[in-house]
């Protein structure tokens, strides 16, 4: 029998006390144990980005390559944690407005990656966006409208936050 580990993990602002197996990935914990299906299995090897979540605020990581037991005391955000009182996050709204969603399977990961990208760089160039989106594969959109959505979101978030140079 594999060792089990008791961990405390904050997910989307809610604290969880859970027992996880040694070899349980964060993806497996989210989908199978906690029944939170919004984070997707796309490849399991850290290449497609469908399982992208944020750790400690705004760092994008692959849930499929993260051992849950190593996350004691940490904080995770999934796409389900972006909405604020029923209002979509500006990145989510931009994806809708810019028609950046087709089959939608890459969308949760792509949205989380975009949030992470904009947290680190609030006014990225197109090239920076394209480079930042690597590690998230989309087979439907050719990335064109996704890039537009991130550009639109970056402008909207500046307004959202009260403009440049605000405190």
């Amino acid at each position: 029998m594999m060792k089990e580990h008791a961990i405390t993990l904050e997910i989307n602002g809610v604290n969880h006390q859970i027992n996880v197996a040694s070899n349980q990935t964060l993806l497996e914990l989210l989908r199978n144990q906690l029944l939170m299906p919004e984070t997707k299995y796309g490849c399991g090897t850290g290449e497609c980005g469908a399982c992208t979540v944020l750790i400690d605020g705004d760092k994008a990581i692959n849930a499929c390559l993260t051992l849950a037991a190593t996350l004691n005391g940490r904080s995770i955000t999934t796409v389900a944690g972006l909405e604020n009182n029923g209002e979509l996050h500006p990145v989510q709204q931009a994806f809708i407005d810019e028609a950046a969603i087709q089959c939608g399977f890459c969308t949760p990961g792509m949205v989380m990656k975009s949030v992470s990208l904009l947290a680190a760089n609030s006014n990225p160039t197109e090239q920076e966006i394209r480079e930042g989106l690597e590690g998230n594969i989309c087979r439907c959109t050719g990335y064109a409208k996704i890039v537009n959505a991130v550009q639109v979101a970056s402008k909207n978030m500046v307004q959202y936050a009260g403009g440049e140079g605000g405190s």
Binding site: K40, T78, A80, T107
Partner: peptide, 16 residues
């Protein structure tokens, strides 16, 4: 599109 909100929130139900 009719399907984009459930997709962007992660609530769309795929077979898995």
């Amino acid at each position: 599109r009719v399907d984009v909100k459930c997709k962007v929130t992660g609530r769309a139900v795929y077979a898995a």
